[in-house]
């Protein structure tokens, strides 16, 4: 049953001269929700970008569904069935809501039909002609999520999706993640908001200074609180 979707080994990443990731190791099984925790600047966002080849340069190994991607350009990595929801959402201002939704090309069969997406996020249907960045923060986050569900990607990389949103929106987002998990999506989340991530994730990694410093399963959470306090101050 355990099928490895993602295995990162000894991943180093650089932006120009600066060395940001120092040998990240991590693996994700099919259908898991894995959360990367850590302080600002610990390297969570860079890990996501490095997975997709969006950093200056990278070395090490990133295997997606068993195939090595370290030498591939970003568009070939996406084609392996990866959907990326970037920090700050990455909604295009020069595109309407509907254009934003339809922008990413399908990467695999079985993407969520547009009708189903609109049923899941009715606000997006109402506002489909609006400029993408005229949506509220919560709507933009839904749009950023919706557009990768359309493509058939089954491995979702969600970077700080709860950031800057009102509590009621964060709750709705949590329910959405729960539904995606129930649908069998494999999800890697980077989260600053521990309380949002805690009930959703199967497993946690803690990052510090460009490395994974700890990992544990959801069941171990109560025992690991001192560790979390030490690294995150929660």
């Amino acid at each position: 049953m355990a099928e490895e979707v993602l295995r990162i080994a000894g991943l180093h990443a650089y932006y120009g001269e600066s060395h940001v990731l120092h040998g990240v190791d991590c693996h994700v099984e099919r259908g898991e929700v894995v959360t990367l925790l850590g302080r600002n600047g610990a390297g969570r966002t860079t890990t996501m970008k490095a997975l997709l080849g969006l950093v200056g340069s990278r070395s090490g190994s990133v295997r997606i569904h068993g195939s090595e991607t370290i030498g591939l350009p970003p568009h070939r990595i996406a084609a392996l069935g990866v959907g990326y929801c970037p920090e700050e959402r990455g909604i295009y201002a020069s595109l309407s809501t509907e254009e934003n939704l339809m922008l990413p090309p399908a990467v695999a069969a079985g993407g969520m039909p547009v009708e189903e997406i609109y049923a899941m996020f009715p606000n997006l249907r109402e506002r489909r002609a609006s400029r993408g960045t005229n949506l509220s923060g919560g709507e933009q986050q839904m749009l950023a999520l919706a557009r990768i569900l359309r493509t058939g990607a089954r491995l979702l990389l969600l970077d700080e999706i709860s950031e800057g949103l009102a509590p009621v929106i964060v709750q709705a987002l949590g329910r959405t993640i729960g539904r995606l998990r129930a649908h069998g999506y494999t999800i890697v989340m980077s989260e600053q908001n521990f309380r949002f991530a805690a009930p959703l994730a199967d497993r946690f990694y803690i990052m510090e200074r460009g490395r994974m410093v700890a990992q544990f399963a959801a069941g171990e959470l109560p025992d690991r609180m001192p560790l979390l306090r030490q690294y995150l101050g929660v």
Partner: peptide, 20 residues
């Protein structure tokens, strides 16, 4: 729309699988 997106944020577009 793809061209307009490319002028605005190219790396993100490529991460969606567009051959930029």
């Amino acid at each position: 729309a793809t061209l307009r997106a490319a002028r605005e944020n190219t790396p993100l577009l490529q991460s969606f699988g567009v051959n930029v």
